[in-house]
Write a protein that binds this DNA or RNA. Structure first.
Lengths: 234, 234
DNA sequence: CGGATGGTGACAGATTATGGCAGGAGTGGG
DNA sequence: CCCACTCCTGCCATAATCTGTCACCATCCG
C-alpha cells in the first residue's frame, strides 16, 4: 500500500474511533511501524488535520478537519455564489481562487438538489477595473495583517512624493475602484489609510506589532465613529 | 509538496472544475509533469475515486466521489466573509440577510481557531450608493428569475418615456452603481438589459416563459460573446 | 486526415519512506 | 517515589517510490 493511501486510511480510522487511539494500535492496524505512524501523523497535521496527541492517552482527531454536510436556503446559496463571484472578479488572484475553492467545497457537501443552484445561479457581477500594478502585493498585505506583522512601505502621496514608513496594518478595505490599507502609522503616530495602488514597495518585518489587532481595530472604529457592522449575525 | 498533499489538491481541483479538464492543464496547475498526473489519477482511482477520462475531452470527477472535502483554509474563509459582506452591503436587503445567515451556518461547523477568523475578518467593504427607490423590487425580480416567470414591467427609458413590456428575466447583473436585469423582451423580440432603477412598476405573471432559462442564458452569452466565466479556474 | 487528448511501458536518477534504536518528557496509578 | 504507558524527536542505512523523459498506441472530434 502506498503512503498516500495509508494516510487516507489513517483518517478513516480516526473517524471511526471517537476515542483516543494509541500509536501502537494504529501501527498494528495499518501494518506499519510505530515510527512511521508518527511520521504519518506529522504529515496529516501539516495538511491541516487537527490531531491531538496526549502522552499516556493516545491520538484523537478533533472535529473540523473534514467539512460536514451543510444545508442552505436558496437565497443563501445565491448570496454565497454572488459574493464569491464578486471576490473572484474584484479581489486579488489568490483570494479569488480561494473563493472558487470554497464554493466548490460547499458544493461537494450540499444535497444534490441544492447543488444545482450553485451552477445555475443567475446573479452576475459586472467586470471591475483590473487591479493596478501596485496591487499585486495585496496577498502579502493580507498576510501581514493576518500575522500582525509590521510593514515597511514606500508610499507615494497624492503629489507623487514618496515617503518611507513603518505601519501596523489592521485591515484592508475594498472600494469600487481602490483598495485601502487601514493601519497605524509610526511616522504620524496615528491611524492612516493607504491606497494600495500607491504603495511603491513593501517589506514584511519579522516583528509583531505591539498591540493586538482587535484592539487597534476597535480604536480605529471609535475614532471614525463606525459602529460594529458587517458582522456575521446581526 | 509531498505526493499525498498533491493528491488531495488534485481532488479539490476536480471539485472546482466541473467540466472535463485536460491532463496538461492539471499538470501545469500542480506544477508536475503530465506523466505524473496520469500516475496520480491512477492512484486516486485505486482508492475509489470515480474519475472519468475521455480521449479528446479530459478528466472529470464524477459526483459519485469519495472523501468529503477538507475544511476551509484561512484564505477561503476570508474570501467567503468578504463576499458576504459585499452582498450585505450592496445587494437587496433579503439577500444581504441571507448572506449573513449563510456565514453564520458556516461558522457553526468551523473549528474554534478558524471560527475566530470569521468573526475578526479584516477585509472590509466600502459603503455603496444606497439602492434607489425603484430597486426595492429586486427580491421579487430574483424570485421571477428563479421561477422562470414572465414579468410585466413599466420601464422608463433614458429620455424618461415609459413603455410597458413583457420580459422573460434570466439573470440579474450587479455593477458598482446599478443593477441590470437580463431578459428576453417580447416587445423587441430580442435580449435586452433593463436597469433596475428605471423599472417603474412590475408584475409577476403566473405563466412560465416558454424556454428554459439555461437555454436562454446560453443564447444570451453567445450573442454577447461572453465565454463561460465566473467559473472555476479559467 | 490531423490535432488534441487519454493511456501504457521502460528506464535512470533523485527523492522519500521506512524500521530500528536511543533517549526525552508528560500522564496516571500504585 | 517508581512504574507503565504514551507521545515525540533525532539519527542512519537501506529499501522503496516517485518523477521526468521518451516512445508509442488508442480514441475522439471536426
Amino acid at each position: 500500500m502506498s503512503r498516500a493511501a495509508r494516510l487516507l486510511d489513517l483518517l478513516q480510522v480516526f473517524r471511526r474511533y471517537r476515542h483516543p487511539v494509541s500509536g501502537a494500535a494504529l501501527a498494528e492496524e495499518l501494518g506499519v511501524s510505530l515510527r512511521t505512524i508518527y511520521r504519518d501523523i506529522d504529515a496529516l497535521k501539516a495538511q491541516g488535520a487537527a490531531i491531538d496527541g496526549e502522552a499516556g492517552v493516545g491520538f484523537v482527531l478533533k472535529p473540523g478537519f473534514m467539512l460536514p454536510p451543510l444545508m442552505f436556503s436558496e437565497d443563501e446559496i445565491e448570496a454565497l455564489v454572488l459574493g464569491s463571484r464578486w471576490v473572484a472578479e474584484r479581489a486579488d488572484q489568490p483570494l479569488g481562487q480561494a473563493a472558487r475553492n470554497a464554493l466548490a467545497k460547499i458544493g461537494a457537501v450540499l444535497p444534490p438538489d441544492l447543488r444545482a443552484g450553485l451552477d445555475e445561479s443567475t446573479l452576475l457581477v459586472g467586470p471591475g477595473a483590473p487591479l493596478s500594478a501596485g496591487e499585486s502585493e495585496l496577498p502579502r498585505i493580507r498576510d501581514a495583517i493576518r500575522r500582525q506583522r509590521k510593514l515597511t512601505i514606500a508610499y507615494a502621496d497624492v503629489n507623487g512624493a514618496s515617503t518611507e514608513r513603518v505601519i501596523w496594518p489592521i485591515a484592508l478595505a475594498f472600494f469600487d475602484r481602490t483598495r485601502v490599507i487601514v493601519a497605524w502609522c509610526e511616522l504620524r503616530n496615528d491611524f492612516r489609510h493607504f491606497r494600495a495602488d500607491r504603495v511603491v514597495s513593501l517589506n514584511i518585518e519579522t516583528t509583531i506589532y505591539p498591540q493586538r489587532r482587535a484592539a487597534l481595530m476597535k480604536q480605529w472604529r471609535i475614532k471614525l465613529g463606525i459602529p460594529l457592522r458587517s458582522r456575521a449575525g446581526d
